[in-house]
Amino acid sequence: MNIFKSPKFSAFIEEKAKPFLVKQKKELAKNTNIVIELVKRGIKLQYRNSAIGVIWTILNPLLNMFVMYIVFGTILKYNDDKTYLLYLLCGNIIFNTMRGATSQSLTSLVYNRGLLTKNKIAYNVFPLACNLSAIVNFLFSFIALIVVMLIVSIQVPVFSRMIWLTIPMLPALFLFNYGMSLILSALYVFFRDVMHFYNVFLTLWMYFTPIFYKLKNLGSLWQEIVMKLVMKLNPMAHFVEYFRDIIYRVKIGTLHEATVDTSLITLYIIGLSFAIVGTLVFSITKRKFIFSI
């Protein structure tokens, strides 16, 4: 009865299980290598032939922030508080990380069709690489954020130890982006107009995410209820507001102003569920990619 000691069992381990594990390990090493090379290529090519190159990654969110500040802070006089700069930048960085990751992934399978129709290769390395580059870009944008925090700190001290919570937040954001990316890239293989649709959707999504506005003075109670619900259901609102909480709200004591109550656990629930659904959609459809790509 002792199957673990029987010669047949040890033969099974030697002949089947061990080669299987060795193969899996090899496959993993190979795919890791591919992803690293893809990320390198993505980052290198992004700013090739540009004079200041990678500095754009830092400059881009800053310029975006100033544009929004000029429009909403100065012209529309929505808010001209110094911390409003930080408010805008937090929203911008998080939303643009998602935008960059997903819209790049969307076309990644079709863009790399030459590679995946001629080689045996795990298809998800392409969206994965796009998502990792987006996280690298996020880290560059973080330099911009530190600069603005230093400027704002002259008037209102904003630095708190909570800033370290950015680190556990990143995997959750990554999972959410990755799940979205898997779904979008798979859809794009079959329907090329997903790209146009998604671009419009991104604009809509941006306006329903608290990037430049706060939920106050909405007028009717009815409007307030609807907007609160939208914020609750919008995953990006959770990420944006969580990031703001830890970057400065908790320090200057305005946590009650957040449009949605959120926590790290909520972020992980969102991230994981999107990653799971994305993986399911991707693995069901991937067998048919090769005929439509």
């Binding site: 290598n33 390198k40 090739r48 030459g114």
Partner: peptide, 24 residues
């Protein structure tokens, strides 16, 4: 077919090598 025409020969060797399963 698997080449990226924006990238240099060196970069393409690295990426395609990884796909063919070469280690670093």
């Amino acid at each position: 077919a698997g080449f990226d025409y924006e990238a240099t020969a060196r970069e393409n060797i690295h990426l395609n090598g990884a796909i063919l399963g070469y280690t670093k």
